[in-house]
């Protein structure tokens, strides 16, 4: 148990959740690329995947999520597509996310800096523990440079590959 009261998700458990095949409806890309929820700056949504997963001390439901800046000019740079787990008491663990090149990033534990290029965040035990003194923390502070995305659609393709998304065949196709 971390100081914040959030159970730490072990690396192996997180990786199992990331690797788990995820069945999604045929329109999943459409939903994540055109999120129905909008505030003044962003559009965002979540796609809950159903069922309950057990990962070490954490149990909850997996979800895919997206956040894109509204009305951004091409080339679009400000977007996030990710996989998360909402636990039984409503805490969100962000497991993995693909970010556009809108900002620099720092891996605070290692001290290395990423320029404003496309990058992928991953939850790790060491980052969860690094911030465990906080009442609410982000355990996915570690990121690596990804291949450059051509845009949101391309980033979503990378997410699909990284988190093992399988599209359900339409029943009566």
């Amino acid at each position: 148990m971390a100081g914040s009261g959030w159970p730490v998700l072990p690396d192996a458990a997180a990786q199992r959740l990331i690797d788990l095949p995820k069945r999604v409806a045929a329109d999943w890309r459409q939903v994540l690329l055109n999120p129905p929820i909008a505030d003044r700056q962003f559009r965002k949504t979540r796609l809950y995947l159903g069922g309950e997963e057990e990962a070490g001390p954490v149990r909850g439901e997996l979800f895919l999520y997206s956040r894109l800046r509204k009305d951004e000019e091409e080339p679009r740079r400000t977007y996030t597509f990710g996989l998360g787990l909402r636990d039984r008491v409503g805490r969100d663990y962000r497991l993995l996310r693909c970010n556009g090149p809108s900002h620099p990033h720092v891996n605070k534990v290692e001290g290395d800096r990423l320029p404003p290029v496309c990058h992928v965040h991953r939850i790790t035990e060491r980052y969860q523990l690094h911030l465990a003194h906080r009442p609410k923390w982000e355990g996915d502070g570690f990121a690596i440079i990804s291949r450059p995305y051509a845009g949101p659609d391309d980033a979503l393709t990378d997410l699909a590959s990284l988190v093992n998304i399988e599209v359900e065949e339409a029943l009566f196709a």
């Binding site: 620099p104 720092v106 404003p116 911030l131 906080r134 982000e138 996915d140």
Partner: peptide, 22 residues
């Protein structure tokens, strides 16, 4: 300071959010 595609400079500093983004 990282140069951006449009000639702007992104300033990376020790001041970051919890997720490591500047």
């Amino acid at each position: 300071a990282f140069p951006g595609a449009d000639g702007e400079l992104f300033l990376s500093t020790p001041f970051t959010y919890d997720d490591g983004d500047n």
